[in-house]
Each structure stands twice: as structure tokens, then as C-alpha cells.
């Protein structure tokens, strides 16, 4: 009762988790491999790209020891395509999340990333390269808002057309925030469920309290109607059973 934080993650916690996302960098200096609890950091050799967690990439960037390669979905063309999708193609829902990461198995087939043997650990986004340079363009990954803001704040010189990207991101944010508010109107007719496929972590953290509040309110208002509906259904199914039995006896 006295828990000071609301349920779910608050925006700062989401941003902290986002620092686990892998990004691609081009190192400027050699750096030996580092063993961390979260795994081995590869040896950095200057012209070769490497994938690092965001926090380490930002640290190296601040020390001018690396440049960050912006992910392909952060390109202005990709962003305007997503905005076009949000506004014109699917004005109701959110643009879909990226497809599951796959890689070739060498026999002309693709299989899920990090899922080679049955029984292996199934990996989810922080351990998948969802924000690295080889992430698919035109799809927003789960941590899109936090990651793009952080990159724009700390590595804007590495991003092509940073000013344009910034404007496009503002547009995208506004469009999606309006959809988020509108998503609760689906509950009006009754029985509707708020569809939140493709919504990012930061957007969820922002709207969680509100959406939960609306769902809870609709549930309370509909509780008695729901109870009568259940009773009717039960009565009907009992009636149905009886008629079945009658037929069996007949």
C-alpha cells in the first residue's frame, strides 16, 4: 500500500535497461577484450566494426575512442517511411515491430537467432542486435525512443542529418501519442481490447498508468452486465446439456 512507485517501470528505469541494447561502433583505438558479467566484450581493432552495449559505446564515444554507427532504422528515409505507414497505411494501429531476428543456417534456410539447439536459452531483445547497424530498417525496435534520444544527445555528429532525424522523431512521437490516447476508445463498444502491438518501452512507461486506469474503470462499470451475461450463458449451457441428454435418452 505504501509502495511509492507505480506498477511497472518508470521512464528512467526503461532508459537504464535500454543501455543494455547492442549498438555498432567503429573503434578509433585498440582495446583488449573485457570480460564482463553480461558477457565478453570483443577485442576492438580500429577499422573493424564491433557490437557493444550502449553504455560502453557511449563511454568510448565520450572519450573520443569510437564512433557510433547509427542503426539503419534511424535514417531519415526509414523514419519517413514509418511515419507514412503510421499516418496513411494504418491510421488505427501502430507500425509493426521488427520481425524476429533470423540468420542463415548455411543450407538455404533461416532459423531464429540464438536458438540453435532445442533446450538452448531463448534470447530476447537486450541480447539480440535489435539496435545494431544490421537491424532491419523501417521497423521500430522496442527501445526506439530512448535509444534515438540518447544517440541524438551524445552522438549527434555520427548521425546523418541529425536535425532532420530529430524533427521526424518528434512527428513520430506525436502521431503515436495521439494513437495511444485514441486506443482506449476501442473499449467503448464493450468487449474491445486495446491493441498495443509495436508500442515501444518508453511509450508504455508513459501511458501505463492511464491505460490501466481506463481499463479498470470500464471493468468496474461493466462488472454487473458481465455477471448477468455469465449467468445467462451458464443457464443456456445447462439448458443445452439437458436437451442433449433428452436426445440421448430419446
Amino acid at each position: 500500500m505504501a509502495l511509492p512507485l507505480p506498477p511497472g517501470l518508470v521512464p528512467t528505469e526503461v532508459a537504464f535497461l535500454c543501455e543494455m541494447e547492442m549498438v555498432t561502433i567503429i573503434p578509433r583505438q585498440r582495446l583488449e577484450s573485457i570480460s564482463l558479467l553480461s558477457g565478453q566484450i570483443p577485442t576492438l581493432r580500429p577499422p573493424h566494426r564491433a557490437q557493444l552495449p550502449l553504455w560502453l559505446a557511449l563511454l568510448l564515444k565520450k572519450q573520443r575512442r569510437a564512433n557510433i554507427v547509427p542503426p539503419s532504422w534511424l535514417h531519415p528515409a526509414s523514419l519517413s517511411e514509418i511515419i507514412h505507414h503510421e499516418i496513411n497505411i494504418d491510421p488505427e494501429g501502430f507500425s509493426p515491430p521488427p520481425p524476429p531476428v533470423t540468420r542463415s543456417d548455411g543450407r538455404g534456410m533461416a532459423r531464429p537467432y540464438g536458438d540453435s539447439k532445442p533446450g538452448d536459452m531463448v534470447l530476447s531483445p537486450p541480447f539480440l542486435p535489435s539496435c545494431a547497424a544490421d537491424a532491419p530498417s523501417s521497423y521500430l525496435p522496442y527501445h526506439w525512443l530512448e535509444l534515438s534520444e540518447t544517440l541524438l544527445a551524445h552522438a549527434s555528429d555520427d548521425i546523418h542529418g541529425a536535425a532532420e532525424v530529430r524533427t521526424l522523431l518528434r512527428d513520430l512521437q506525436e502521431v503515436r501519442a495521439a494513437k495511444m490516447r485514441g486506443s482506449t476508445t476501442q473499449l467503448e463498444g464493450g468487449g474491445g481490447v486495446v491493441g498495443l502491438r509495436g508500442v515501444g518501452a518508453m511509450e508504455l512507461a508513459e501511458s501505463r498508468g492511464f491505460v490501466l486506469g481506463v481499463v479498470e474503470g470500464v471493468r468496474k462499470l461493466g462488472a454487473s452486465a458481465e455477471a448477468t451475461r455469465r449467468e445467462e450463458e451458464e443457464a443456456r449451457s445447462e439448458g443445452g446439456e439437458e436437451s442433449d441428454e433428452d436426445m440421448a435418452f430419446g
Binding site: E188, L221, G222, A223
Partner: peptide, 29 residues
């Protein structure tokens, strides 16, 4: 309204209340 819906059989009242709540919630947000 929710208490009254428990006591009375008023399906129309329920529908109106739910619609108002959802529409006003969008505005509140």
C-alpha cells in the same frame, strides 16, 4: 453508477456510462 448498475437492471444506463467514461478519458489524457 456502478453501484446502481448492481442494484438495477438497466443495460442502457451501463452502455451510456461506459461510452461517456471512455470518451471523456481520451479528453482527460
Amino acid at each position: 453508477g456502478a453501484r446502481m448498475l448492481d442494484l438495477f437492471e438497466e443495460p442502457e444506463l451501463g452502455v451510456v456510462l461506459r461510452r461517456s467514461f471512455v470518451v471523456r478519458a481520451g479528453e482527460v489524457a
